[in-house]
C-alpha cells in the first residue's frame, strides 16, 4: 500500500511522515509513506493525507499552485473512494468555505464554514495551544480502541479557527474550549482531525494506525 502525504509547501511535514512510518512499522502494516508534491502520485495513491499549517487561504493557494493537485484529490478521493485524512488546516480545507482573513472556497466535502473560535470563557486564550481530551459523538473506525472523554487520551491542538459543520452527523468528536469546538469530522471515505495526530503521542499513533487499516 502506498500512502501519499501531500507536500504543498505547508510547514512541518517531517513529523507527519515519521509518525506514519512509525505507526506502520509498529503495527506491521506494509506501507510506503510517500511525501510527494506530484499530483499523479496522489491520484494513484492507496490512501491520501493532507497536512497543513498556517492560514486557510494560503494553504488553498498552495494546493492550487501545485498544478493539478486539486484534480488529483478529486480523482483519488471523490471518484476513487480511497481513504483520506486531513490534518489541522488540511482538515479545515474539507469545508465549503474558510472565513480566515478573507472568504476562500474549500474542497466542499464537509458542508460548513471555518470560523474564528469564540470561547464562552473570555479568560481562554486564542490560539488554543496544547493538550485536551475529546468528546466522541458517534462511533468511527478511526477511534476504534481509543479511550475518549474525561479520563481518555489527550490530543495536541494548535488552532484559532474551527470547522462549523452544517450537518451534526459529520462531527465525530468535539473538544471543550469554552464550548464544544470541532475536533474531528468524517463523511464516507473522508476524515479530518483539527488536532495533530502526528504530535499526539499515544492517541495519535493509534489513530494513524486505524487510518492505515481503515476500509471505508
Amino acid at each position: 500500500m502506498r500512502v501519499a502525504i501531500i507536500d504543498y509547501g505547508s510547514g512541518n511535514l517531517r513529523s507527519a511522515t515519521k509518525a506514519f512510518e512509525r505507526a506502520a512499522r509498529e503495527a506491521s502494516i506494509e506501507a510506503e509513506i510517500d511525501l510527494t508534491d506530484r499530483p499523479e502520485r496522489v491520484a494513484s495513491a492507496d490512501r491520501v493525507v493532507l497536512p497543513g499549517v498556517g492560514a486557510y487561504a494560503d494553504c488553498r493557494r498552495g494546493l492550487d499552485a501545485a498544478g493539478g493537485m486539486t484534480e488529483a484529490l478529486r480523482e483519488a478521493i471523490e471518484l476513487g473512494g480511497r481513504p483520506f485524512l486531513g490534518i489541522c488546516v488540511g482538515m479545515q480545507l474539507m469545508s465549503s468555505r474558510g472565513l480566515e482573513k478573507t472568504v476562500t472556497a474549500g474542497l466542499d466535502w464537509i458542508p460548513g464554514d471555518v470560523v474564528p473560535m469564540q470561547p464562552g470563557d473570555p479568560a481562554l486564550k486564542i490560539p488554543q495551544i496544547g493538550w485536551n481530551t475529546l468528546t466522541l459523538h458517534r462511533e468511527h473506525p478511526l477511534f476504534s480502541g481509543i479511550p475518549t472523554g474525561d479520563g481518555g487520551l489527550h490530543a495536541y491542538f494548535v488552532h484559532s479557527y474551527h470547522l462549523q459543520a452544517e450537518n451534526p452527523d459529520d462531527v465525530v468528536a468535539t473538544v471543550d474550549y469554552g464550548g464544544p469546538t470541532t475536533a474531528f469530522v468524517a463523511r464516507d471515505n473522508k476524515a479530518g482531525a483539527q488536532f495533530h495526530p502526528e504530535k499526539s503521542q499515544m492517541l495519535g499513533l493509534a489513530l494513524i494506525t486505524n487510518f492505515l487499516r481503515w476500509k471505508p
Binding site: G11, G54, A55, V89, P127, I129, H159
Partner: peptide
C-alpha cells in the same frame, strides 16, 4: 505570521 500563520 502572515507567511506561516500566527500559531507557529
Amino acid at each position: 505570521a502572515d507567511k506561516f500563520g500566527n500559531q507557529c
